[in-house]
């Protein structure tokens, strides 16, 4: 069972308290109704599913209930970092994994 650091609680807590919420940094258009079919496909259906570094959303379901972002290596299953929802993709990752 992984330990995940909640950036709001500032605590490492066991995976049991969290729920994955899919890939992060997929922006919903401010003008959804005008989105083209292609753009909607990219927004709704296409996910990167990388081998390696993934940016994803988690929710501290049984804690503060906040959604936040995490950077995880899908090969080692290690969390490299977590950060609050709305914060930009980190420019630099701790530990030269990439």
């Amino acid at each position: 069972m992984l330990l995940i650091r909640c950036p709001y609680c500032e605590e490492e807590r066991p995976e049991l308290e969290f729920r994955n919420a899919g890939e992060a940094h997929i922006a919903r258009s401010a003008d959804m109704a005008a989105t083209s079919d292609d753009d909607f496909e990219k927004f709704f259906f296409i996910r990167s599913n990388p081998k390696g570094i993934i940016y994803e959303r988690w929710r501290h379901m049984h804690g503060c209930a906040r959604f936040f972002n995490a950077v995880r290596d899908t090969v080692s299953d290690r969390f490299l970092m977590t950060y609050k929802a709305g914060e930009p993709k980190p420019a630099k990752l701790p530990g030269a994994f990439e």
């Binding site: 919903r28 959303r57 929710r59 209930a65 959604f67 929802a85 709305g86």
Partner: peptide, 13 residues
């Protein structure tokens, strides 16, 4: 509830 919280926290904060 999860769906609402998700949009409130992340899309419509």
């Amino acid at each position: 509830m999860n769906h609402m919280e998700d949009y409130l926290q992340t899309e419509f904060p």
